[in-house]
């Protein structure tokens, strides 16, 4: 880790100005659970940090109007246990509470969590001479054009959806998957003012430029997340299958929210995690459910539809089957929930 300068602004405007004053190596830092971690691995090499967590008023959770609005600095643990979120939008609450550990959820903010970087082992484990371990693997995210060691390598954890010849790294988050299912919008502030961004537009596919993971400008800062209130929220779940029961990244996960009358599905929102290069909206699975009476078989068929375009590698083929079954289970769990 190289020496850093550290600034602690108290307003968004000050933060943007501080970012500009620190020059090219400036980065915003919130909880630090991704950025500081990657600095210790010598992957992120900022020369200046703008700590946004001392900005006042950015941690507000507002569920009073037609929308849910989460200030970017609201802690993951706090949004997870907000009474309205817990009771009316279990998909959001569960996505947060199944992520990481309580310690990290107390640190990480719901805004900066959207910018969590991949856990691909060839990306993370290596390069740094000291704390980064002994390895040094080709990775197009780390060094554009250096190649992808995961393709043809140990790829059990890699993505099967949205992959390219340059990268198969999984988008690691849980919270972004739930937000994609719920069509959240992101409030972004930058030197030129504020803008709203549908969350689906935050994450580009890797294509030939896997090092570009987010569509934000470096100077831009996430200030809030907005979700239109909807009836599907109450009949929802975030189902996450991992290599252990807790404190692990998803092998496959599914955010599912349904509107139903009787057994009939009127609306479906389905997104996938752990299997794709970005939070993955499963339109084909949704389409298969809408207008039909839900059965176990239909749920399984919808799960399979979600993976129709999957491109497995050497040893992650099981994710296609596991992912389909995870979606199917999530659909049935969500359906069993009754709106209040």
């Amino acid at each position: 880790m190289q020496p850093i300068r550290y600034i602690r602004p108290s307003t968004v405007r000050e933060a943007i100005a501080a970012h500009a004053s620190l020059g090219d190596g400036a980065r915003y830092i919130a909880g630090g659970t991704t950025l500081y971690d990657l600095m210790k691995l010598n992957i992120e090499r900022p020369t200046g940090l703008v700590d946004v967590t001392f900005i006042e008023g950015l941690e507000t959770i507002d569920t009073s109007g037609d929308t849910l609005r989460f200030g970017a600095n609201a802690r993951m643990a706090d949004v997870a246990t907000d009474p309205i979120v817990q009771s009316q939008y279990p998909v959001l609450s569960e996505a947060l509470s199944k992520a990481a550990s309580q310690q990290l959820r107390n640190m990480a903010t719901v805004g900066a969590n959207l910018l969590q970087r991949t856990r691909c082992m060839y990306f993370r484990n290596g390069y740094g001479g000291a704390s980064g371990g002994a390895a040094d693997y080709p990775c197009n995210k780390r060094i554009p054009g250096s190649g992808c060691a995961a393709i043809g390598g140990l790829d059990r954890g890699q993505a099967v959806l949205g992959v390219s010849d340059a990268c198969t790294a999984v988008s690691p988050g849980d919270w972004p998957v739930a937000l994609v299912a719920m069509d959240a919008r992101i409030e972004v502030a930058g030197p030129g003012g504020e803008r709203m961004l549908p969350i689906s537009e935050l994450y580009p596919l890797p294509g030939e430029t896997p090092h570009i993971e987010f569509t934000l400008e470096p100077s831009e800062i996430i200030v809030g997340i907005v979700i239109g209130k909807n009836a599907a929220g109450a009949r929802s779940t975030y189902h996450k299958i991992r290599d252990r029961e807790s404190f692990a990244f998803a092998l496959a996960s599914a955010a599912v929210a349904l509107e139903m009358s009787g057994d009939r599905v009127n609306a479906a929102r389905i997104a996938l995690g752990g299997v794709a290069t970005r939070p993955w909206r499963a339109d084909a699975a949704e389409a298969m459910l809408i207008g039909s009476d839900l059965t176990d078989d239909l749920a399984m068929a919808a799960g399979r539809a979600a993976f129709a375009d999957a491109v497995p590698g050497r040893s992650n083929g099981f994710k296609v089957e596991l992912g389909a079954r995870t979606v199917a289970d999530a659909i049935m769990i969500a359906a069993a929930r009754r709106p209040l």
Binding site: L41, F54, M107
Partner: peptide, 29 residues
Amino acid sequence: CDHGQCGACTVHVDGRRVASCLTLAAKVE
């Protein structure tokens, strides 16, 4: 672990548990 993966460094900041290894000291101002 020094990477927030094991919990051995857990302390309370303002009464909440955090991983002190992934907390910049500057943040406890």
